[in-house]
């Protein structure tokens, strides 16, 4: 990078824009991957919590409390730098997605648990009264309604994961923050570049915040009517 001369003028703007957009793409991929991992793991954990015995519930509690109490940065360092010393080398992106996913799963488990509890008990009573078994009640009556209820919270979780991807820059994941830092080292245009980065984040997060708000009003209406 230092061997090549820095482009100037319009080319410079295009270079910066291109780099930031590439970074944004990686950021989105990272967020999506971590979100999928979070939801999948949380579904498993929430299931264990609801249907498992005392031992299962204790394990889920330990997992949730631990991964909510440690900073994401520490977790990423452990996964990327720490595990390498015992032979488990990971490249930056998998480490980032794994770390963000493990962290996200902890929050998501709580979201799922709250969602299931939010379905009025009368629903499962009515379902039981027509002879449904517990798994049928879950499958046909409780879970479909719980999913609607948790959508706003899940959207907010997605926004948080998006913001957390910035921390992955510390383990050299090629997302927008990392690329921005390199750009600043090259061009010294730090205020412009960091503001642009903020703008890019806002372009993704503000629509998501609006979506969460809209989902909340829709869920709120149906919940209030009961």
């Amino acid at each position: 990078m230092t061997a090549l001369a820095l482009p100037t003028g319009v080319d410079l703007h295009l270079y910066i824009l291109g780099t930031l957009l590439a970074g944004a793409g990686v950021t989105v991929v990272c967020t999506a991957g971590a979100l999928v991992l979070s939801v999948a793991a949380a579904a498993l954990l929430a299931g264990l919590q609801s249907f498992g015995g005392v031992a299962a519930r204790v394990c889920v509690f330990a997992y949730v409390e631990f991964f909510r109490a440690i900073p994401v940065l520490a977790l990423l360092f452990i996964l990327y730098f720490g595990l390498a010393t015992i032979g488990l080398k990971m490249s930056p992106m998998p480490a980032a997605i794994l770390g963000l996913g493990l962290n996200g799963a902890a929050y998501c488990t709580e979201i799922f648990r709250a969602g299931i509890l939010a379905v009025p008990s009368g629903q499962s009573e009515a379902a039981r009264a027509i002879g449904m078994r517990r798994w049928q009640v879950m499958r046909w009556i409780v879970l479909p309604q719980a999913v609607r209820i948790v959508l706003p919270a899940l959207t907010n979780l997605a926004i948080n994961i998006l913001k957390n991807t910035s921390v992955a820059s510390a383990v050299a994941a090629p997302e927008i923050m990392f690329l921005a830092r390199n750009l600043v080292n090259e061009t010294y245009l730090s205020p412009q570049i960091y503001l642009s980065v903020c703008l890019v984040y806002l372009l993704i997060s503000v629509p998501m915040m609006k979506l969460a708000g809209w989902l909340e009003t829709r869920v709120g209406v149906t919940a209030a009517k009961r």
Partner: peptide, 23 residues
């Protein structure tokens, strides 16, 4: 509030520490 909540704290810190220094 929207700007702060929609961007990562890291980006905000970078702007304040590196960005403002440049200015």
């Amino acid at each position: 509030v929207t700007a702060i909540r929609g961007t990562p704290a890291l980006a905000q810190l970078f702007f304040i520490y590196f960005g403002l220094a440049e200015l």
